[in-house]
């Protein structure tokens, strides 16, 4: 298992590096959930290529272990918020693949009835608060979710995702300051996929992401985000720390995005060799598969049922997303404001 580096901040780490390999059923669940995101995103890329999905479309392929691992150790009252690379987060939160795909195609059956698109989906039922298109906004809004958890005393934690690019935003630091000051129950996840759009972290960020909260006394860890079991282990302990009233925690998830920033990315900023190497060494699904083959003695064929189940879900979502009608023209005028109660 990948090692966990300790943040060099004064704040002491809450994370221990000892963990047992989970039961077979749990491993299978993690594998299945990551595979759902992978195949869903591949299908979304396909539909985009066919002109069925418009605008921006940011795929999560390569990063699946992060949201899958963290979501697997959350409590039901916890809330989640992220930026625009959000399809994986929604599926991990338990949102219906049909509704997500239909939103991508801009149809009535989408989570926002076709009015949000890829970057703007929400489900208060699944406690998923978006889907935000402005880089860095999720950090502030998510700290507000944590504020509400504390205010309402519901023992919930806000799991707040940002990318390496977003974590350079001033508001990220403004909110870490307030979160530490007020001991808000917030777990900041920095998904470091090595590129803020086309600018590598070497060119856009000084210092280490996991130390970004150090000056506020917020402990941080750097985690191998391609290893779902490491993610799960670290997230469990970080969530315990936060839930116990100790204030925020930062986890930098080192990862790699296998596709472009968005569908329209020419990819000139990184070499083919670099990409191929990452795909060979850091594919979270392949890594878990290898572990399951070793630990559970599974064969290639034993993974076929997963493919079959997921293929059915994804195909059904694609079908639904194309058959669901476009929103009625009257929808143009709804949801601008909520009516004032008499």
């Amino acid at each position: 298992m990948a090692s966990v580096k300790k943040a060099k901040s004064d704040a002491s780490s809450a994370i221990s590096n000892t963990s047992k390999i989970p039961e077979a059923a749990e491993l299978k669940q993690l594998y299945r959930n990551m595979l759902l995101i992978r195949r869903f995103e591949e299908k979304a890329g396909q539909l985009y290529g066919m002109g069925l999905i418009g605008g921006f479309c940011h795929l999560y392929i390569g990063q699946e272990a992060i949201v899958t691992g963290i979501q697997s150790v959350q409590e039901p009252q916890d809330t989640v918020i992220t930026t625009y690379r959000d399809h994986g987060h929604m599926l991990a939160c338990g949102m219906d693949a049909k509704g997500v795909m239909a939103e991508l195609t801009g149809r009535e059956g989408g989570y926002s009835r076709g009015k949000g698109g890829s970057m703007h989906m929400f489900s208060s039922e699944a406690k998923f608060y978006g889907g935000h298109g402005i880089v860095g906004a999720s950090a502030s809004l998510g700290t507000g979710l944590a504020f509400a958890h504390q205010y309402q005393g519901d023992k919930g934690v806000a799991v707040v995702y940002s990318g390496d690019g977003a974590s350079n935003q001033g508001q990220f630091f403004e909110c870490m300051n307030m979160a530490a000051l007020w001991k808000l129950p917030v777990l900041y996840i920095i998904e470091n996929n090595q590129y803020g759009m086309g600018t590598s972290t070497k060119r856009h960020a000084a210092g280490e992401f996991y130390q970004r909260g150090a000056s506020f006394g917020i402990p941080g860890e750097k985690v191998d985000g391609s290893d779902v079991l490491t993610v799960q282990n670290v997230a469990r302990q970080a969530l315990d720390y936060v839930r116990s009233g100790n204030g925020p925690y930062v986890l930098e998830m080192s990862t790699y995005r296998f596709r472009g920033h968005s569908m329209s990315d020419p990819g000139k900023y990184r070499s083919k060799e670099e990409l191929e190497k990452a795909k060979a060494e850091r594919d979270p699904i392949e890594k878990l598969k290898a572990l399951m083959m070793k630990e559970l003695g599974m064969s290639e064929e034993d993974f076929n049922p997963f493919e079959k189940e997921i293929k059915a879900i994804v195909n059904e979502s694609a079908e639904f997303a194309q058959q669901s009608p476009e929103p009625h023209p009257d929808e143009l005028w709804t949801d601008i404001l909520k009516p004032v109660e008499a």
Binding site: Y129, S140, L145, F173, C175, M178
Partner: peptide
Amino acid sequence: PITEHGFAGLAVGSAFRGL
């Protein structure tokens, strides 16, 4: 703190949760 961007966003996030 004197951080309008941060606390305005924080307040909006809390309003999403019903405050």
